[in-house]
Amino acid sequence: MSTKNWPLWEVFVRSKNGLEHRHCGSLHAADEDMALENARDVYTRRSEGVSIWVVESKHITASNPENNGEMFEPAHDKVYRHPTFYDLPDEVKHM
């Protein structure tokens, strides 16, 4: 069996201009050109995209869900960042 396995790539597709690229899955390919071509064949067979990004999976740094506490909790007690925190008289209809 070959020891030279194709690396893993993550695929992001923009479905139409005006929308962001969204992660849609991954695939194996020898290099970036092949990754783009394979992404087209695997993830856009029915015109699902107008633009594709591929990035080798090893280049992605991800947060660890086990640390979600210290990572995301600081945002929980800052209700003053939301408009509903502020009291306004009823007469003010739009603000």
Binding site: M1, N5, L8, G25, S26, L27, H28, D41, V42, R45
Partner: peptide, 22 residues
């Protein structure tokens, strides 16, 4: 060709559980 694609979606989804394609 769709079946090949479906196989590939599912293989890469399975790889997220820590098993390699090989």
């Amino acid at each position: 060709q769709d079946e090949a694609g479906h196989g590939l979606y599912l293989y890469s989804a399975t790889e997220t559980l820590g098993i390699s394609r090989e």
